[in-house]
């Protein structure tokens, strides 16, 4: 699954600037996470059209990059996040960061995470019977 990362300054309204530009371009945001320091932050998003999002934002002067991340379906029950993280921990997969979907009409919740070892993560999760979500299924 693809994620776009955008560099934003830490000042009022800077996140909104990105999201409103995407809305204007009719790009839908599925998941969002921001990581910030006192001066600047990285806004991470899963959108329905990452190429278009990158093109639009770059044209408007943002620094944007597309990354490959992993999206996995969670069972809609108690302890599901913990269960997922323990599968990864047992498989020695180091998770850089996680976040989850904002909207997913009627479907199971999705957790997004980044790791430096995508292949191994895929293998372990498949073996454990976890459903991996692809861009097409968004």
């Amino acid at each position: 699954m693809k994620q776009i990362s955008v560099f934003v300054e830490n000042r009022p309204g800077s996140l909104m600037e990105v999201t409103s530009r995407l809305t204007e371009a009719e790009v839908n945001i599925r998941a969002v996470a921001s990581f910030d320091t006192p001066e600047f932050g990285i806004l991470r998003m899963v959108v329905d059209d990452p190429q278009k999002a990158k093109q639009e934002l770059t044209r408007l002067g943002f620094v944007v990059r597309i990354y490959e991340v992993m999206g996995v379906e969670l069972q809609d029950e108690k302890g599901n996040l913990n269960h997922m993280l323990s599968i990864l921990a047992d498989g020695q997969i180091n998770v850089n960061y996680i976040y989850s979907f904002v909207i997913r009409e009627q479907k199971a919740p999705v957790m997004v995470f980044s790791t430096d070892d995508m292949e191994k993560a895929k293998e372990i999760l498949t073996k454990a019977g976890v459903k991996i979500v692809t861009d097409e299924e968004l």
């Binding site: 990362s5 955008v6 560099f7 990581f35 320091t37 600047f40 990285i42 620094v63 944007v64 990059r65 990354y67 850089n96």
Partner: peptide, 15 residues
């Protein structure tokens, strides 16, 4: 001004 998108990988690269 930051111009290199490769640094958006992680906060530690920016730092």
């Amino acid at each position: 001004e930051l111009i290199d998108d490769r640094l958006l990988d992680s906060y530690s690269k920016l730092s």
